[in-house]
Design a protein around this nucleic acid. Structure first.
Lengths: 174, 174
DNA sequence: GTCTATAGTGGGATAGAC
DNA sequence: GTCTATCCCACTATAGAC
């Protein structure tokens, strides 16, 4: 049985490993090709350019975050924990997926909305949902960047964030 | 009257202009030197390396943010507005100053604490202060990165953030 | 579909003359 | 303190042979 090799998919996977294990600078077409087992110029027979690899990684990241949130259910504390856990486990992919403007025209349709849906339905109000998303993003971003003092109690900071927004959630007694 | 030229200070200023006007890639030693009016190698007589320029810019950014917050007074809405305004007005410097681990050993002593003080004294609780800081950071970061949908009402998102944390501030009736 | 060769562009930093 | 010359590095991407 012949199993055709999907070089494009191999390249994306190679890019992800390089990104997550060694950082963004390691994700060069040369290194990607090396992992695939071919030379860099041959990559361009399977992928239009480097941006394509990055866009596919962004799509993977968004899809996985959305799935993690959906699996957490409607509870804010659980949503926050799931968001934090995914981001910390995939720090460099998280940064790649959130640092730059979304290439919306090259992303699978509905992906952005699907990733946002769990928070939106937990709060009902889109403005609150955005504030909560941004707050989680800020906490995780600063944690990943190592910007909090070394002795900072980040669990407590997350708890404070959850406590602040909890009264605005759908299920809460207001 | 002889006015000696401080090449190091000139280089830092040149780096800041290049960063803010053209982006981080434009901030090369060659471009910096060009703005100063000398050749790139001569820069190294006045500055040990490029990292020194970046560190001085981070210090400038932190000092200016701290000053903006201090000037805003203890009111949370005003603090948030000041934070947002400074960050949006200096987007690329803000990113430079918050994206990577703080080089604490090469920063002026007390600078980090001074920048954090206004928020800390507005809330009393360090955990809450960190959550608020991170929330503002997340909002401003996503706004700078162009990550919100084009039609998103960001004033409303900021208002939601302020409303969520306001009950935890010192002056509020609890 | 793979290769070699290479174009084109940039970067940080040092040596040594003046 | 400034210069020229240079090192050494890296990258994305294309041309054209096989």
């Amino acid at each position: 049985m012949i199993v055709p090799v999907d070089r494009a998919a191999q390249a994306v996977e190679a890019a992800r490993v390089l990104l997550e294990q060694e950082g963004r600078e390691a994700m060069s077409m040369r290194r990607v090709a090396e992992r695939v087992g071919i030379r860099a110029p041959s990559l361009y027979k399977h992928v239009p350019d480097k941006a394509e690899l990055e866009i596919r990684l962004v799509a993977q990241g968004l899809a996985e975050i959305g799935a993690a949130l959906a699996a957490a259910g409607p509870n804010l504390a659980r949503l926050a924990a799931a968001y934090r856990a995914w981001a910390l486990a995939h720090g460099r992919l998280y940064k790649l997926a959130t640092d730059e403007p979304l290439p919306r025209d090259r992303l699978p349709p509905g992906l952005e909305a699907a990733a946002a849906e769990p928070l939106l339905s937990a709060f009902g109000d889109e403005h609150v949902a955005r504030a909560v998303w941004a707050s989680a993003h800020g906490l995780v971003t600063l944690e990943l960047a190592g910007r909090f003092p070394p002795d900072a109690d980040l669990d407590a900071a997350w708890a404070a964030m959850v406590a602040a927004y909890a009264p605005l959630a759908r299920g809460s007694a207001r």
